[in-house]
């Protein structure tokens, strides 16, 4: 029997279709199936009443409602925002791993920093003498730890490796080193560079007593400190 015919029989048996003259007379197989479905429908209707009595009570329901409490506020907004945020974060990390050249600018500062640290001699700090003692005891010089600039955790070539790679090249002149220091100073932590060991000496402004012809103000001259200059009278 075709499925379409069987569906029609089901609808006939469950009262959802009328038996048309074209359907009659039904063959034996169809008639048997129709009887089967009619019997099934009657059994289903009878099953409706075959339900044991319940023991539900309003008190039981009230207790259950009180126990479970009112429903909490749904936090769908941030829940839905969490998934895209995580996906974006993962995508950014993956992108960062695929394109490490995105840090080219930062790397130039770090190279200058590495060069500076490689060339700069270690700073020797002398411990102060004890106050009670009049005799200055010999104190072993202590090597102070190098200031650690605020850097990322990325793997960089060590200063020794950098020196080894540049062994065949002459060291940069002082002027070039000063430029590198100035450049790296802007990208590094100020606290690390302002320490007495690493900070560049401040310039001195000399204010003269003579007035300028154009502005009428005292003339000021900016000079670099030197050992052979005496400031003041």
């Amino acid at each position: 029997m075709k499925r379409r015919d069987e569906n029609h029989l089901i609808k006939l048996a469950f009262g959802e279709a009328e038996l048309s003259p074209a359907d009659e007379p039904l063959d034996r197989e169809s008639a048997l199936k129709l009887d089967l479905y009619r019997q099934m429908r009657q059994d289903l209707l009878d099953a409706r009443d075959a339900v044991p009595p319940d023991q539900l009570s309003p008190e039981r329901l009230r207790e259950s409602i009180l126990r479970s409490g009112l429903k909490k506020e749904r936090r769908t907004l941030w829940t839905w925002a969490l998934a895209p945020s995580l996906a974006l974060l993962v995508a950014l990390i993956a992108l960062n791993r695929e394109h490490p050249e995105a840090n080219v600018v930062a790397s130039s500062f770090e190279a200058a920093d590495e060069a500076f640290q490689a060339v700069a001699p270690p700073v020797v700090e002398t411990a102060p003498a004890p106050k009670e003692s009049n005799v200055a005891a010999p104190v072993a010089p202590k090597v102070a730890p190098k200031p650690t600039p605020n850097r990322s955790k990325r793997v960089r070539p060590s200063p020794k490796a950098l020196l080894a790679s540049r062994a065949d090249q002459p060291l940069a002149p002082a002027a070039a080193m000063a430029d590198i220091m100035e450049t790296s100073r802007s990208g590094m932590d100020s606290t690390a560079l302002d320490s007495p060991e690493t900070a560049s000496p401040p310039t001195v402004v000399l204010i003269e007593s003579t007035a300028d012809q154009a502005t009428g103000m005292n003339i000021a001259t900016e000079v670099r400190p030197a050992a052979n200059v005496v400031i003041g009278s």
């Binding site: 409706r48 339900v51 044991p52 319940d54 539900l56 039981r60 329901l61 259950s64 409602i65 429903k71």
Partner: peptide, 24 residues
Amino acid sequence: YQMVQRRDDAEDITQEAFVRAYQN
């Protein structure tokens, strides 16, 4: 009851349904 065919389960489901209905 017609769905689970057990009286105790049907009672639990009925009660839970009304609790959820009240909460929602």
